[in-house]
Simulated assay, not measured.
Amino acid sequence: MPNLRLQSVSIKLGRDIVVHEVSAELAPGRLYIMVGPNGAGKTTLLKAMTSLISLQSGMISYNGLDLALQRPGVRAEHIAYLPQERSIAWDLSCVDVAALGAQHLEPELARQKAFAELQSLGLQEVADRGVFKLSGGQRARVLLARVMASPADVLLLDEPLIALDPAWQRQVLIRLKQRAEAGQTVILSLHDLHLAAQFADTVLLMDKGRLVKMDVPEKIFVPSLLSEVFNLKGELIAGEGQKTLRLESLPLL
């Protein structure tokens, strides 16, 4: 049963409608990956799912309740969000930053939860170090640990692999896949189509503010859609538990 439902969602920024009539049902236990060209509406739609921006029309509901009518504190209990911007205002320790996601716990328990999430992301040795002293990739993992320390049952992550090296990109996706398998609803945006094809349970293909198609990777990464949306020639080859997306560019029009 879906716990997050989008019903004919349209969003206007300035004079432009940037998301057009998007409808989708998102259920626990699945890893949803949103893909599309720059300007497709992925970030805007993720922000709308947190009620950070208002809808022009339509409704986004959580467990049947209109999110826009819920108090921010109530929304935060159920939905955790990692924005694409990775800014940190103060030079707190890594564990203190991650513990901000566990404010539902007593301070010491929050720090324990934060340390466990940092450890799962390979940051246990820098847990007490100030975040300003870390590399960009390490800071990105600290902010991810903050989201994962949250008790929320919906995780929204906008390009969570930014600044991560290839090994940690895969490790983070494995961790998010495990969260989905444990019963959370995990929704993220990615530009890397190869990783989306390998890890997604369901892909949301966005283009020009519209949801072109929502389906399993095998039905999204097909020649017709790759050509139409990305101007790419390619195919998804699946076999023996592996998925490989082969791509090549088409001539620019």
Rank of each mutant, 00 (worst) to 15 (best):
E117Q: 13
K243W: 09
L176G: 00
R246S: 04
S61A: 13
A196S: 05
I33S: 05
G183K: 13
A99C: 11
S189Q: 04
A102D: 08
E25K: 04
T185Q: 07
K133W: 10
E235L: 11
D128H: 08
R75K: 05
E106H: 10
E25M: 03
V186W: 06
G183H: 11
G64K: 08
L52G: 01
K233P: 00
E240G: 03
A27W: 08
L247V: 05
L31Q: 03
R246N: 03
I17C: 02
K12A: 07
G39M: 05
S227G: 06
L156Q: 02
A200Y: 12
L52Q: 13
V9H: 05
L6N: 01
S189G: 02
G73I: 04
Q124Y: 12
A238P: 00
R5D: 11
L100Y: 13
A80D: 09
L4F: 10
S135R: 04
L204H: 04
L134C: 09
L69Y: 07
Q56K: 10
D165S: 01
R30S: 08
G36Q: 12
W90V: 02
P223M: 13
D192K: 04
R210A: 09
P251L: 15
M49K: 02
P83T: 08
L161D: 07
S51Y: 11
L232K: 04
P251A: 14
M214A: 15
A48F: 07
G239Q: 10
V222D: 11
V212W: 09
V229Y: 11
S189K: 03
V216E: 15
E21R: 12
V22E: 13
G183Y: 12
P166V: 14
P151S: 14
V97L: 08
Q70T: 00
A102L: 08
W90D: 04
C94E: 06
V9K: 02
A180C: 04
E21Y: 13
S8A: 14
E248L: 09
G39P: 00
V222C: 09
A127W: 07
V9A: 04
S135Q: 05
L92Q: 07
G122L: 03
L26H: 02
R86T: 00
A140G: 00
N3P: 00
S227A: 15
K113C: 08
F132M: 12
L69C: 06
S51R: 13
I174C: 14
I237C: 02
G58F: 09
S23W: 10
Q103S: 08
Q7D: 12
S227L: 11
M206F: 15
V172N: 09
A102Y: 05
R129L: 03
Q70V: 00
D215P: 01
A27Y: 06
S93R: 08
T244S: 05
